[in-house]
């Protein structure tokens, strides 16, 4: 790899642009998709690798090429700059999440409590709309406060985000489900919410709860069987 190509790859990563590094394994010849002109079959392989976030080797004219996707980081949007968020945010970083914390209560969402983390003080619906959650985004609400959590969940449920988790007991969630129904969300949409948030590991402390939430995030992202459980709404009905 030339230093110039390394610099371009790192610039794309810094700009959060999805790119794929294509390497001809016979001689190390490389190009960067989509910046460089690449043969059609390689472009298709690059798109597939980025979509699936998985590297692969493909043959082009009998020559093996390594297709190495470099997606921007996964995103985690945390609503509520609360104590659990202070445990959750630093633990999410080494797992590869770019984190944004939303809380209009300025006393909570401070740089002192969340050093180096992107903070938003606008109302959760506006902040969420601006952040535009995509299929590589997870949303976790932690405020317990319907006037903060609900608008965020409203936007999350209308987005393709891969994970939605909401802190609160089953009782709290039952009331939340009723409010979300009134807002026009159907059962299938509401069943996307993981609540109570996190894997059931009897977590007590803030770091333990953060661990259970992040373990559930990983399980959902990797398609682990333990992430598939009865929909919260169905549990309530039972």
């Amino acid at each position: 790899m030339t230093p110039a190509l390394l610099a371009r790859l790192r610039a794309a990563q810094a700009a959060k642009q999805p790119v794929a590094l294509l390497t001809r394994l016979s001689d190390g010849h490389q190009c960067l998709w989509p910046e460089d002109a690449c043969p059609g079959a390689l472009a298709e392989a690059a798109q597939a690798a980025l979509r699936e976030d998985a590297a692969r080797t493909v043959a082009l004219d009998g020559e093996p090429w390594f297709v190495h996707p470099h997606n921007p980081p996964l995103r985690l949007i945390v609503v509520g700059a609360v104590h659990i968020a202070q445990a959750l945010v630093p633990m999410a970083l080494p797992l590869g999440f770019a984190v944004t914390v939303i809380d209009p209560r300025r006393a909570w969402a401070t740089a002192e409590r969340f050093p180096g983390i992107a903070l938003r003080h606008d109302w959760p619906d506006e902040a969420m709309a601006a952040l535009a959650p995509d299929s590589r985004t997870a949303v976790v609400t932690l405020t317990h406060d319907p006037k903060l959590d609900d608008p965020a969940l409203d936007v999350a449920l209308r987005s393709p985000c891969f994970y939605i988790g909401a802190l609160g007991s089953r009782r709290t969630h039952a009331k939340r489900v009723a409010r979300l129904r009134e807002m026009g969300h159907g059962e299938a949409a509401i069943a996307r919410i993981h609540a109570p948030v996190g894997l059931a590991i009897e977590a007590v402390t803030a770091p333990e709860i953060a661990l259970s939430i992040l373990a559930e995030l990983v399980a959902v992202r990797r398609g682990a069987a333990l992430a598939a459980r009865a929909a919260p709404a169905a549990e309530q009905a039972a």
Binding site: M1, P3, L6, A7, L9, R10, Q13, D53, A55, P69, H70, N71, P72, P73, L74, L93, P94, L95, G96
Partner: peptide
């Protein structure tokens, strides 16, 4: 891979800037 926050490429670039000979 994007899921890795181990910035191996960043480390490699840093080493190169320090005048090291680097392989990946």
């Amino acid at each position: 891979m994007s899921e890795s926050t181990e910035d191996v490429l960043g480390t490699a670039a840093q080493w190169l800037a320090e005048g090291e000979t680097v392989a990946i």
